[in-house]
Design a binder for these strands. Structure first.
Length: 613
RNA sequence: CGGGGCGUGGCUCAGCCUGGUAGAGCGCUCGGUUCGGGACCGAGAGGUCGGAGGUUCGAAUCCUCUCGCCCCGACCA
């Protein structure tokens, strides 16, 4: 491919509204163009990468017998009403009406009525396709003999994010591989889950990026297990903790936190109410330092203090209740754990004014003792702890001598704490947590019976009995993955494409295209490489200084750069340069195919060893 | 949705406070000289200053409304 004919405009300066590296580099490299907030065109170079990744996905899924199909992007409201999600999905679901509904709406308005337009929305843009696939399967699959079945599509999705950001990483329109599997029972769904888990490991390993499968929070739905696949990158939105002694890797929202006992050696005392007075001091650390009495002239160690949070939990079946969480003063609460423990559909920190009214005290002095109608949860690090301090529910005062088991009747001990780097892994008991940042690019999830029950997707078993199918779903954010690969692989000069998804593998630069010999050699090399199966972008642009071509090549970041210029040809050589290592090899034009092949083999070898574990 | 910021040629930005003939650099076109890490000279093309309304003799500039975009937060999986 001749670069002079390629649709591309590189930019020297970073566009102002690009805020993350992948977006900046892709815009500067002329790969994507924004059409609206969170909505991008994929220009030829970007689209080549995207298609390459899609092919990897297709090939690996084919190995597990998955079948590809394509569902509509515009979905009828009825299906979503049937599953119940029309009501619950919220504003991320872009809804609208077709001409028929519009006409009816206009007619009602004509008659002087003022109907709510939203009542007339009868279609939406698909953000995910559980409803449609379930509808397809229930109409076409009736027998256990046809199961299991795993169906997937690669398709443009739309989610009307409140705040689209980070370019392709959190756009409103994006390409996603979404797969769904159907099974006769739980065991078979589990088998498929692990088959997909392994397929995903192969996919991301082939992509050539560092990644981790991580145990994730499955939310309130069913309590089934789920894994997310994360590309590791400093700019990742998610925090991941990984044990250095075993395989346990999890999203910090879910990571088990080992109990860290307070270790108070004093004899247990009675609860001394309002023992410490620290007027006007709000911060946990400052308060502890100000808790001075005869036995504690230096104040109280933070590990002997407690902190308290009041939440309001809302349940799916309706109703709310108050939940209190007590943790050691130096520990951080993990609200997801609190939420999951209570089984609530939603959990919000009680607004400050309400909490102050409820406890009768200012923030900083709230405590668990004596509160009525609150489900009291205590972090397991405080199980057996005595002589703690806690807010007195009286402004400026703290109790001293708290023994949660004694003073908080009916309280439950649970893991509520946010795990942190360095904690001893509770799974193996030996290793320590290491922290990573990750970009979530894939998820495997056991859906269970949620959709098959609500939508009547059933099969007849060997006994002729009707059963709901057990479902699983498996997603990969295609465009997000390509962006994530860049987030992980770039330097000051531009992108460092992993070989498997590089738009082109070799960037051939004609440094003096006006020179007949250079032109002839470059042309020949391009032909030879393409004949050998390599993808070559030939920068044949005239009137451009070598320096400018180097800069562009670095920015585009194809793995190999081949330079043909008068200077080299005087010695009878062209130069092959590795984008990542910057190593340069001088070689005769006839040797190009052999050397490029060798370089490819070396790069692919390195990818295999650098991939995820 | 709350808070903050920004909308001026394709890109980055100046001009606005203090109203008076729309600017620079990059990119693009043409000519010439260059040519191994974003070369130089000369000549050009390209903007109803996001939109609407208002104040004024006169608005990119002041006022009101509106739309779009970006950031932080909340929210979501």
């Amino acid at each position: 491919m001749k670069q002079s004919k390629l649709l591309i405009q590189t930019l020297r300066e970073t566009p102002r509204d690009a805020d993350v590296v992948s977006q900046q580099l892709m815009m500067r490299a002329g790969m994507i163009q924004k059409a609206a907030a969170g909505i991008y065109s994929y220009l030829p170079l970007a689209y080549r990468s995207i298609r390459k990744f899609e092919e990897i996905v297709r090939e690996e899924l084919a190995k597990d017998g998955c079948q590809e199909l394509l569902m509509p992007a515009v979905l009828p409201a009825e299906l979503w009403q049937e599953s119940g999600r029309w009501k619950f999905y919220g504003d991320e679901l872009l809804r609208f009406c077709d001409r028929k509904a519009k006409a009816e709406l206009a007619e009602r308005r004509q008659r002087g009525e003022t109907p709510d337009e939203r009542e007339f929305y009868n279609f939406c843009l698909g953000p995910t396709h559980e409803e449609v696939i379930t509808d397809i399967v229930r109409k076409n699959v009736r027998s256990y003999k046809q199961l299991p079945m795993n169906l997937f599509q690669i398709q443009t999705k739309f989610r009307d994010e409140r705040r689209p950001r980070f370019g392709l990483m959190r756009g409103r329109e994006f390409t996603m591989k979404d797969g769904y599997s159907f099974h006769v029972d739980d065991a078979d769904a589990d088998r498929e889950y692990w088959a997909m888990f392994n397929a995903y490991k192969r996919i991301f390993a082939r992509l050539g990026v560092k990644f981790r499968p991580v145990e994730a929070d499955s939310g309130a739905i069913g309590g089934s297990f789920t894994h997310e696949f994360h590309v590791l990158a400093g700019s990742g939105e998610d925090a991941i903790l990984s044990c250095d002694g075993c395989e346990y890797t999890s999203n910090i929202e879910k990571t088990e936190a080992p109990a860290l006992p307070a270790g108070v050696n004093e004899a247990p005392m009675e609860l001394r109410k309002d023992h410490f007075r620290t007027p006007g001091v709000v911060g946990q650390v400052e308060q502890a330092a100000g808790m001075i009495d005869a036995d504690h002239p230096q104040g109280m160690p933070l590990t002997q203090t407690s902190k308290f949070f009041l939440y309001r939990a809302t349940f799916a079946e309706g109703g709310t209740k108050l939940v209190g969480a007590v943790l050691r003063g130096d520990h951080e609460v993990n609200p997801v754990k609190v939420k999951n423990f209570t089984g609530a559909a939603e959990l919000e920190l009680m607004p400050l004014e309400e909490a102050e009214a409820f406890t009768g005290t200012k923030t900083g002095f709230m405590g668990p003792v004596g509160l009525k109608d609150v489900q009291m949860l205590v972090d397991r690090s405080l199980e057996g702890a005595v002589n703690l301090t806690c807010g007195a529910n009286r402004t400026d005062y703290h109790h001293f001598g708290l023994d949660p088991k004694r003073d908080l009747p009916g309280c439950t001990f649970a893991d509520l704490r946010m795990a942190q780097e360095g904690d001893v892994c509770p799974r193996c008991g030996k290793g320590h947590y290491q922290a990573f940042r990750g970009i979530e690019v894939g998820q495997v999830f056991k859906l269970g019976l949620k959709y098959s029950k609500s939508m009547g997707c059933t099969f007849l078993d060997e006994q002729g009995r009707e059963n709901p199918m057990v479902m699983g779903c498996y997603g990969i954010g295609i465009t997000r993955t390509v962006a994530a690969a860049i987030e992980q692989n770039y330097d000051a000069d531009g992108i460092l494409w992993p070989w498997p998804i590089a738009p082109y593998q070799v960037h051939l630069l004609s440094l003096d295209p006006g020179n007949a010999e250079v032109a002839a050699v470059a042309e020949q090399v391009e032909k030879d490489l393409e004949a050998a199966g390599f993808e070559v972008l030939h920068d044949d642009r005239e009137g451009m200084s070598p320096g400018a071509k180097f800069k562009d090549a670095d920015l585009l970041g194809f793995p190999l750069r081949l330079m043909v210029g008068t200077k080299g040809l005087k010695e009878g050589v062209v130069e092959l340069r590795d984008r990542r290592t910057k190593a340069v090899l001088k070689l005769k034009p006839e040797a190009v195919v052999a050397e490029v092949s060798a370089a490819r083999d070396r790069i692919m070898q390195e990818l295999e060893t650098a991939g995820g574990r």
